[in-house]
Simulated assay, not measured.
Amino acid sequence: MTHSTRPVTLITGAAGGIGAALARALAGTHTLILQGRDPARLAALADEVGGQPLLLDLLAPDTFGEALAGLGRVTNVVHNAGVAELGAVAEQGHAAWTHTLGVNVVAPAELTRLLLPRVREERGTLVFVNSGAGLRANPGWASYAASKFALRALADALRDEEAPHGVRVSTVYPGRTATPMQQQVRAQEGGAYDPDAYLTPETVAATIHFVLGAPRDAALPDLSVRPGPR
């Protein structure tokens, strides 16, 4: 496979646990565009996997068009970036809601809109990394779950809209995964962080890799991934 015929895959939140694991899993077979907002971490990962860094603040959607203008082909987009700020509805103000929905929903929607012409040309795939919270909302998780329910709605509508263009849309619902974000969540919950009880980022990355490489006659709309027996 030559460089010019490789799929070009853009990963958001690429420097995080799942994003970095996915970049490593795809290195050598995909041309990678790695979105993040930490220049040092992004540059280190880009050097490791041979990817192109894309510095982008997901809370500034008005900057997306200019940032993406220089990109060439884009075959696949993996919407992996996300934030989680726990709290009861009675305690969380509009700033928490705006931040969570901005990163988890508005940014993926706007990036998708801007990148769709390229993905259509490639008959590519869009993957939305969701959460178990996108299927069920628990106490203290209202803003995060609302954002993930909305992300699911975005993917569901997009799937039918883009089918005539040959674009596939999948949502992956990982269970708790051993990432820095999960450490923060457990701290907010006041519980212990036990990475051995969770999925590894590499397992979730392998699932996304499978989705991206599925034969063209297969549609994989929704996949839930949970820790298996040890």
Rank of each mutant, 00 (worst) to 15 (best):
T5Q: 13
R6Y: 06
T9S: 07
T12A: 13
G13R: 00
A15I: 14
G16H: 03
G16V: 05
I18Q: 02
A20R: 07
A20I: 08
L22H: 04
R24T: 13
A25G: 09
L26N: 01
L26Q: 03
G28W: 07
I33A: 03
D38Q: 14
A40Q: 14
L42K: 00
A43I: 10
A44H: 03
A44C: 01
A46C: 07
D47R: 11
E48W: 02
G50L: 07
G50Q: 10
Q52W: 15
P53N: 12
P53Q: 12
L54H: 09
L56G: 00
L58F: 09
A60C: 08
F64E: 02
E66I: 11
A67N: 06
L68I: 14
L71C: 05
V74K: 01
T75P: 03
N76F: 02
H79I: 07
H79E: 03
A81P: 06
G82E: 04
V83H: 01
V89K: 02
E91V: 05
Q92D: 15
H99P: 08
H99A: 15
H99I: 10
V103L: 04
V103G: 02
V105D: 11
V106F: 11
V106S: 06
A107K: 05
P108Y: 05
T112Y: 07
L114F: 03
L116H: 03
R118D: 14
T125Q: 06
T125K: 01
V127F: 03
G134H: 06
G134V: 13
N138G: 12
A146H: 11
K148H: 10
F149Q: 04
R152I: 08
A153E: 12
D156M: 08
R159Y: 08
P164G: 13
V167R: 00
S170Y: 08
V172M: 08
R176N: 12
T177I: 09
M181E: 07
M181T: 07
Q182D: 14
Q183W: 14
V185Y: 10
R186G: 09
G190I: 04
Y193S: 08
D196G: 08
P201G: 02
T203P: 01
A206P: 05
T207D: 10
T207G: 08
I208A: 01
H209T: 15
F210I: 02
L212W: 05
P215D: 13
P215W: 11
A218T: 15
L220K: 00
V225K: 05
V225I: 15
